[in-house]
Amino acid sequence: MGSNQQAQLPRRIIKESQRLLSEPAPGIKAVPNEDNLRYFSVEIDGPGSSPYEGGKFRLELFLPEDYPMAAPKVRFLTKIYHPNIDKLGRICLDILKDKWSPALQIRTVLLSIQALLSAPNPDDPLAENVAKHWKENEAEAVREARAWTMRWAR
């Protein structure tokens, strides 16, 4: 089954997977699932000088059938207080939607998500109440985000 599945896996996905394992991006781990090589367990370290610093955030990533013509699907599995990430861990990020290009890769997607943790964008919110909090009282919202990091991401 394993080798059979490997044989059907597009070469591009095999290459990307190998490179993710051999040269991981700093603070990012992505490991394909043994039973489904299009399905990755991901861990992103909260970036330094962000309210997520010190946290380890678990995500899941799936390469749909038409990848790389279609974007990967990614979701946070760790609860996070962030204006662009909703209660179900869904992420509002342009390259996962209309700005996707086949020139991008799993690695670029994960780096962009890491960057989104450093630079929350409350003007393009997914979690409305979190974004409102961020705009009205950023210091307090940042404290809340830090508390969530301590509670859920350690």
Binding site: N36, Y39, E60, F62, P64, E65
Partner: peptide, 15 residues
């Protein structure tokens, strides 16, 4: 499974 044996994992299927 669907064509090409691509299996959509549980959580993404529910999403």
């Amino acid at each position: 499974a669907g064509p090409g044996n691509v299996v959509v994992p549980r959580n993404f299927r529910l999403l």
